[in-house]
């Protein structure tokens, strides 16, 4: 079977233990197997190691009993960025198929994933006081850029990602309508500088 990676990232600034727990649940691991995934890679953030280690051990054992041979691994943070892991999920390795990224709703991570156009499931962190991350995830899901994932039904989101893979929209979006002629950041900078050409 060709390699197919599900990469999960919780980000660097806030902890998101609920997401780590959710992707190590039996239902989710079964869903991974049903969708042909061979590898689950988790960026669990600072302080997430203990939780990840204990939960992944039980998860691996439980999966083996069910005949699920999925490889589960994790790391806390990578200063060099997540590009490498996102490309692995994209299927950049020889003979690998395209997988999926499951991410917290941080704008930087979402942008990284959109730029290499890997299917993305965004899971907003309900523990954060400010809910603007939910708004971003909603509007992006509405416009078919990402799949909106809920913690309690991640297995369903995984199935949606398979369908969504085929209708994925290109990034960055081309300007349309009244903004077709807008000159972007350069235009604004030129106007403010007083460059007249």
């Amino acid at each position: 079977m060709s390699q197919k990676t599900c990469f999960v990232t919780v980000g660097a600034t806030a902890s998101f233990t609920a997401l780590i727990r959710a992707v190590l649940e039996a239902d989710f691991l079964t869903a991974l197997q049903n969708n042909g995934y061979t590898e689950l890679l988790v960026q669990y953030g600072e302080g997430g190691k203990q939780l990840f280690d204990t939960h992944s051990k039980t998860a691996i054992n439980a999966a083996k009993d069910e005949g699920n041979e999925i490889k589960i691994s994790g790391f806390d943070l990578d200063k060099a960025g997540l590009g490498r892991y996102m490309r692995q999920a994209k299927g950049a390795n020889l003979g690998a198929g395209e997988g999926v990224v499951i991410s917290h709703a941080g704008s930087g991570t979402i942008l990284d994933a959109l730029r290499i156009s890997v299917p993305l499931i965004v899971v907003p962190n309900a523990d954060l006081l400010d809910n603007h991350q939910v708004e971003l995830a909603e509007v992006l899901a509405e416009q078919d850029y990402v799949v909106y994932g809920k913690l309690e039904s991640l297995d369903k989101a995984l199935g949606e990602a398979e369908v969504w893979r085929k209708k994925q929209r290109q990034w960055p979006p081309t300007n349309s309508g009244v903004h077709r002629h807008a000159n972007g950041l350069k235009g604004v900078m030129d106007e403010e500088m007083g460059f007249l050409d």
Binding site: G106, S107, G108
Partner: peptide, 25 residues
Amino acid sequence: SGGHTAEMMSMLERAVTDPDPKLKL
């Protein structure tokens, strides 16, 4: 830090590599 830097760099990278000469910084 974090998201702010990511967005700023993304914006600038997009502007200096834009295929459209009118938009290219």
